[in-house]
Design a protein around this nucleic acid. Structure first.
Lengths: 146, 146
DNA sequence: ACCTCCTGTAATTTTTAAATTTACATCATT
DNA sequence: AATGATGTAAATTTAAAAATTACAGGAGGT
């Protein structure tokens, strides 16, 4: 049905970790401040990224660092890490079509044919953008006056 | 942020109108029953499709009919008709990043670069599927035993 | 001309999903 | 042991989507 803002928060965190992860300890509280998102949400996102091997989090004492080449971190991988079945709920389907109507009885399967393709195409599109690309944009925007 | 279930309801309505629009008067109440969606929502969807020239609705007495070759009705056109700026809100962005943080201050613009491309790709994908394709799937599924 | 059935919208309420808050167990370092 | 983190679970709050209610038209039948 939708890709949540979690994806945006995740990328925000990854940029932050890349930029500051070596110099200082990047905790969920710090990311919470930078993103304006509460720290529990940050931790679930971070937890997903960690499980996927994109970042690692120092146990006990805390702090996150990138654990993967920038060019291998695609938007697809980020979305998948934080919401494994995001692609299948891109477009919502009305839940109560009439089983007495030939259209209503079959609409779910019919839409499935097309929506699967749309989902696959979206995944390809998300795979085409990497954290490397995004950091390039970030630095370009940073250097712009004002 | 997401493509709503309205898109699915719209396609359901279009299939229904194609199948029964000539034989009987397809009203919003009938579509409401078939889709399991209330008739006001149906009417706003129908209204969008009408404005786009996909269907026409007999004024006063009611009833909708297809007004466009099946091959020209793409999913893109349907989505656009019922939600003109659907592509720009595909992926949500967290609304309150810190303006004091270099990342927070620029994240909106940075994400914009990538999200615009994703949005464009999605539109292309949606353009590749027509009502003709969907009706083909529908009839194929109808003919399957059980 | 009037009644009926339908559309088109506006305004409100309900429902549902997402995000926040609260709470606490656990894990390293000091 | 004490501190400052993470990792989750459960409950509350918030915000978005859909349903409901209400009503002003339009066209055709009688």
């Amino acid at each position: 049905m939708h890709i949540s803002t979690k994806c945006s928060v995740a990328i925000h965190c990854l940029i932050f970790i890349y930029e500051y992860g070596e110099k200082r300890k990047v905790t969920s509280d710090l990311l919470s401040l930078s993103t304006g998102t509460n720290s529990v949400t940050i931790r679930t996102i971070i937890s997903g990224l960690k499980k996927d091997g994109i970042i690692s989090v120092r146990p006990g004492t805390g702090g996150a660092t990138l654990d993967c080449p920038l060019s291998e971190v695609t938007l697809y991988r980020v979305c998948k890490a934080i919401e494994p079945d995001f692609a299948s709920k891109l477009i919502g389907v009305h839940p109560l079509p009439s089983p007495l109507c030939p259209v209503g009885k079959n609409i779910y399967d019919v839409l499935g044919c097309s929506y699967q393709k749309i989902g696959k195409d979206l995944c390809e599109s998300l795979k085409s953008i990497t954290l490397e690309n995004i950091l390039f944009d970030y630095h370009r925007i940073l250097q712009k006056p004002n």
